[in-house]
C-alpha cells in the first residue's frame, strides 16, 4: 500500500464509442475503464448479459462480439468501438425464441437462470466454431476434424460455470440443436433484430 495514493488523472476522460447492441446502434461517451459488460448493464440497461465474477473465470458475461463468443467483462468498451454485440435477448425474444433458447427450455438446461444467457450465447458460438472445424482439448487427433459428440460439447462449454448443476441438461439441449444444424447443413449465424426498449 502506498502512503500517498495517486488518484490518477483528475480530468474526466470520456471517449466517444459506438456500439451496436442487439441490432441497435448506440453512440456513447465512455470512461476508458468501462467494460462492455458494465456498459451494457449500467449504461444501456441491457440486462440479458450477467456478471458472475468480473474476472474471466465463469462465462456468465458471454456475448457474441462480431459473431464470436467472448467474455464481456474482460472487453474494454473503448477497445470494442464499432463492434456488433449480441446478447441472449438479441438471439430471441420470449415470443420468438432462438432454437437454442427453446432447447434449453425443453431440456430444463438451467435452474436459477443466471448463467443461462451466457450459456446460450456460448453454445451458439461454440456450434459455429465446431462447424468451422476447430479442434478442442478432447478431439482425439488434433490434426483431424472434430465431431459433434457429448465429450466435445462438455469440453467446449466448460468455460460457462453453472452452480445449480444443470450441465447434463445443457449438454442435451446443445446436442439437439447441434444435430439439427448438422442435418440442415450449416445454419447462418442468427441475425440480430432491432430491440426497442
Amino acid at each position: 500500500m502506498k502512503d500517498t495514493p495517486d488518484p490518477g488523472p483528475t480530468f474526466p476522460i470520456a471517449l466517444p464509442i459506438q456500439l451496436a447492441v442487439n441490432g441497435k446502434r448506440h453512440q456513447l461517451d465512455l470512461d476508458p475503464r468501462a467494460s462492455v459488460l458494465d456498459t451494457l448493464r449500467d449504461r444501456l440497461g441491457v440486462m440479458s448479459v450477467k456478471k458472475g465474477c468480473d474476472h474471466g473465470q465463469c462465462g456468465a458475461c458471454t456475448v457474441l462480439a462480431d459473431g464470436k463468443r467472448v467474455l464481456s467483462c474482460l472487453c474494454l468498451a473503448a477497445s470494442y468501438d464499432g463492434a456488433d454485440i449480441l446478447t441472449a435477448e438479441g438471439l430471441g425474444t420470449v415470443d420468438q425464441l432462438h432454437p437454442m433458447q427453446q432447447a434449453f427450455l425443453d431440456h430444463d438446461g438451467f435452474q436459477c437462470g443466471y448463467c443461462t444467457p451466457g450459456q446460450i450465447c456460448s453454445a451458439v458460438g461454440m456450434l459455429d466454431e465446431l462447424a468451422q472445424g476447430m479442434p478442442s482439448h478432447v478431439t482425439p487427433d488434433v490434426r483431424k476434424v472434430a465431431e459433434l459428440n457429448d465429450a466435445e460439447i462438455r469440453e467446449r462449454m466448460s468455460g460457462n460455470l453453472c452452480r445449480c448443476g444443470a450441465y447434463v441438461n445443457i449438454v442435451s439441449a446443445i446436442r439437439e440443436v447441434g444435430q439439427g444444424q448438422a442435418a440442415s447443413a450449416a445454419l447462418p449465424m442468427p441475425v440480430a433484430r432491432e430491440v426497442t426498449r
Binding site: 474471466g56 462465462g59 458471454t62 464470436k68 463468443r69 467472448v70 467474455l71 474482460l74 472487453c75 456460448s122 458460438g125 461454440m126 466454431e129 468451422q132 472445424g133 476447430m134 479442434p135 478442442s136 482439448h137 478431439t139 488434433v142 490434426r143 467446449r156 462449454m157 466448460s158 468455460g159 460457462n160
Partner: peptide, 28 residues
C-alpha cells in the same frame, strides 16, 4: 490452434493452446 499447417506440423502446440483457458478466452 485451428490453423491446419500448425496442427499438422506442431500438434503439441495446438494441443497446448486448446488445454488452456476456455473457448471464449481463446477467442480473445
Amino acid at each position: 490452434a485451428a490453423h491446419p499447417l500448425l496442427r499438422e506440423r506442431y500438434p503439441a502446440l495446438a494441443e497446448a493452446i486448446l488445454a488452456g483457458a476456455s473457448g471464449q478466452i481463446r477467442n480473445m
